[in-house]
C-alpha cells in the first residue's frame, strides 16, 4: 500500500472540500478500496473517510425512499420498507459478498466498486483500465466471467455489484455533491460503457461524492425479485443475475416491467429492449423468451463466456415466470 493521509469527514461539505484535492479518494467500508490499495491498483494520496455521513433511511411522503450513502448494505437489506416494498433490492444485497462484508460496505462504496477482472488485478497483465492504452489481456485470455453486452475492444470487464442491478431495475436516482454543488443522476446513467476509455467508469465529476440513493415510489415493486447464478452456492460473484419487477394486469398482460442484468456488462445493465418488448404483451413464457431474445440480440461472446447468453436468456425467462406466477 502506498502511503496516504487519512481524514474523517462528518458532513458532506467537509468531505467534498477534502475530496476535491488531487489524489484524494473517498473511503466507505473499505471492502473494495482497501483491497485495491493493497494491490496498488489504487494509490490515493489522501483518504477521506465518509462513513460518518448520512446513515439514514427515510421514507418520504411521496412514497420514495432516501438511503444515505453511508448506510451499510446490511442495514438496507434489513430495513422493513426495503423488504416489503423493494424485495428485489433486499434480495440483491443479500446475494452479494458475505455477512461480514455487508456489515462494512456502504451503499456509496458498493456502487463505485471496481471490476473483478483477473487481468485488471494482475499488474503483470495488460489492462486498459489500469494503464490506459496498454491493451487488454482478457479479450484473448480467461474471460468466462466477462461481458457479453456493451463491451469494447478496449475492455470486456463486468461490474460486480448485485445491489446496483436491483437499483438499475428500480430506476434509482443517485444524489451527488461536490464543492461546485449538488445534482442527481439516474443510476443507469452513472456507470459508463467502456468504449475507448475503460479507465473512466462513471460520469462522476472530480471530487463528486455520492450522498444518497433515492428509490422512486414504485408500488408494484412489491412483486419483484433477484436471481443470481454463480459457481458456488454462496460467496461468489454473479455469472449472470437478473433483477425484475413485474406488474401484471388481471387479464394476464404485462402492464409494466423493469428488468436489469448483472454479470454481463461493464455496468449494471438495464434491459430496456426487453422491457419495451414486454409492455402491453401477454405475461407468457413465449413473450418472456422473445423479450430476452430482444435484449440479447447484440450479445457478443468471447472465448469462454458464450454460455452467458443462453444463461441470461433462461434466467430472465425463469425470473419473469416466477413473478408472473406470483402475481396471478
Amino acid at each position: 500500500m502506498t502511503p496516504f493521509s487519512y481524514a474523517r469527514a462528518g458532513d458532506a461539505a467537509t468531505a467534498t472540500g477534502l475530496g476535491m484535492a488531487e489524489g484524494a479518494k473517498y473511503l466507505g467500508g473499505g471492502t473494495n478500496l482497501v483491497d485495491l490499495m493493497r494491490e496498488t491498483i489504487e494509490r490515493p494520496d489522501r483518504l477521506v473517510d465518509v462513513t460518518g455521513l448520512s446513515r439514514m433511511i427515510a421514507e418520504r411522503d411521496d412514497g420514495s425512499l432516501m438511503i444515505g450513502a453511508a448506510v451499510r448494505n446490511t442495514a438496507v437489506a434489513e430495513h422493513q420498507a426495503v423488504r416489503e416494498r423493494y424485495p428485489v433490492l433486499a434480495r440483491a444485497i443479500l446475494s452479494g459478498a458475505s455477512g461480514q462484508i455487508r456489515n462494512m460496505a456502504t451503499v456509496g462504496g458498493n456502487i463505485l466498486q471496481r471490476t473483478r477482472c483477473a487481468y485488471f488485478y494482475d499488474d503483470a497483465a495488460r489492462c486498459n483500465k489500469r494503464v490506459p492504452g496498454a491493451g487488454c489481456d482478457a479479450i484473448d485470455g480467461f474471460n468466462r466471467t466477462h461481458a457479453i453486452l456493451g463491451a469494447s475492444p478496449a475492455c470486456v470487464a463486468t461490474h460486480p455489484s448485485d445491489m446496483c442491478v436491483a437499483l438499475a431495475a428500480l430506476g434509482a436516482v443517485v444524489h451527488l455533491e461536490n464543492t461546485a454543488g449538488a445534482r442527481t443522476l439516474p443510476l443507469v446513467d452513472l456507470h459508463r460503457l467502456p468504449m475507448g476509455r475503460p479507465e473512466v467508469e462513471t460520469l462522476l465529476e472530480p471530487g463528486e461524492l455520492i450522498t444518497a440513493i433515492e428509490l422512486p415510489p414504485l408500488p408494484w415493486a412489491v412483486r419483484s425479485t433477484y436471481r443470481k447464478v454463480r459457481d458456488r452456492a454462496s460467496y461468489a460473484f454473479a455469472l449472470v443475475s437478473v433483477a425484475a419487477v413485474l406488474d401484471r394486469s388481471g387479464d394476464g398482460m404485462v402492464r409494466d416491467v423493469r428488468l436489469a442484468l448483472g454479470g454481463v456488462a461493464h455496468k449494471p445493465w438495464r434491459a430496456f429492449a426487453a422491457e419495451a418488448a414486454l409492455r402491453g404483451r401477454p405475461a407468457s413464457e413465449a413473450c418472456f423468451r422473445a423479450a430476452a431474445e430482444a435484449e440479447l440480440a447484440d450479445a457478443a461472446p468471447l472465448r469462454d463466456n458464450g454460455f452467458k447468453i443462453e444463461l441470461a436468456r433462461r434466467t430472465i425467462v425463469a425470473v419473469l415466470n416466477e413473478l408472473a406466477g406470483e402475481t396471478a
Binding site: 473483478r116 483477473a118 494482475d122 497483465a125 480467461f142 458456488r232 452456492a233 454462496s234
Partner: peptide
C-alpha cells in the same frame, strides 16, 4: 468448482486468490 487458471500465453496463474479460486463454502 476448483480450477487454478494457468494462462497458457504467459504461464501465469490468473486466479491467485480465494475469491477467484473457489473452494466449497458452507452452503455448498
Amino acid at each position: 468448482t476448483e480450477e487454478t487458471l494457468f494462462d497458457a500465453r504467459t504461464g501465469r496463474i490468473m486466479n491467485p486468490s480465494l475469491a477467484d479460486y473457489h473452494v466449497p463454502v458452507h452452503l455448498d
